[in-house]
């Protein structure tokens, strides 16, 4: 009986199970075949993809336990401040299996040469630095979904009215991460901390990517959808 109990896998943390169920479907970039390849097409593809990803992220956030309980104003403040961090975590996760490629979507992955040709070398470089960190940690899907929800709850927006409600959301997710690591990775007692310590690089990466998009907006050569512009402006 003792052996059977020891071999039985630990029950899945209910938060992790929930987060796995609400994981959104993959999006495709679908670059416009009518446009000639080059920086304008790449930037345009990326901005269009980001706009659709934001819609998906908003829908996903509504399924994060505790998020819908925030006031509408606070839900907006949280999303406006962290959407790009969440989006970058999605891209980093997609890029994990591919060495030296930034996988913005299943049909839009750039290696160094393609990134240079697309004028996205710098952007791809900062994404790859993040990917490198998660690859070194051998990030698992369960940890990824927890970290993504934590990135949402980790908003430091000065516009949040009820910070204690956001803190509660953060605490519940933090607790779920600790519980998951204790049950699944008891041999790595510092793993939860290591995962949380990737959040500063995620924020730094988001700031750099935001600057890239904002420069594109100022140049005015690439069409941007209204929601993307709205979210971009909210971060500036």
């Amino acid at each position: 009986i003792a052996t059977a109990t020891a071999k039985k896998p630990a029950p899945m943390n209910t938060m992790v199970s929930h987060l796995l169920v609400v994981e959104p479907e993959k999006l495709y970039a679908m670059p416009d075949p009518a446009l000639p390849d080059g920086p304008t097409k790449a930037a345009s593809t990326l901005c269009d993809l980001a706009d659709r990803e934001i819609v998906v992220i908003i829908g996903w956030a509504k399924n994060i336990p505790g998020f819908p309980a925030l006031s509408l104003a606070d839900q907006m403040s949280v999303l406006q401040s962290v959407w790009l961090e969440v989006l970058l975590l999605v891209v980093a996760w997609r890029s994990l299996p591919c060495e030296d490629e930034s996988v913005f979507a299943e049909d839009f992955a750039l290696d160094e040469e393609a990134a240079r040709a697309a004028g996205l070398l710098e952007l791809s470089g900062v994404v790859l630095q993040l990917v490198c960190k998660y690859r070194a940690l051998r990030l698992e899907r369960e940890e990824y979904v927890l970290l993504k929800a934590l990135a949402l709850a980790n908003s430091d927006s000065v516009h949040i009215e009820d910070m204690s409600a956001v803190q509660r959301l953060r605490d519940v997710l933090h607790e779920a991460l600790l519980e998951y690591e204790v049950s699944r990775r008891p041999e790595e007692p510092r793993r939860a901390g290591r995962l949380l310590l990737t959040l500063p690089l995620l924020r730094q990466t988001a700031t750099r990517v935001l600057n890239h998009f904002y420069s594109l907006k100022l140049e005015g050569k690439v069409p941007m959808h209204k929601l993307f512009l709205e979210m971009l402006e909210a971060m500036m």
Binding site: V55, Q80, E230, A234
Partner: peptide, 19 residues
């Protein structure tokens, strides 16, 4: 919310239409 009307609408109604 006037400046952020699409986000507001998506959170409130959940309708991604006509963006």
């Amino acid at each position: 919310t006037e400046r952020h009307k699409i986000l507001h609408r998506l959170l409130q109604e959940g309708s991604p239409s006509d963006i």
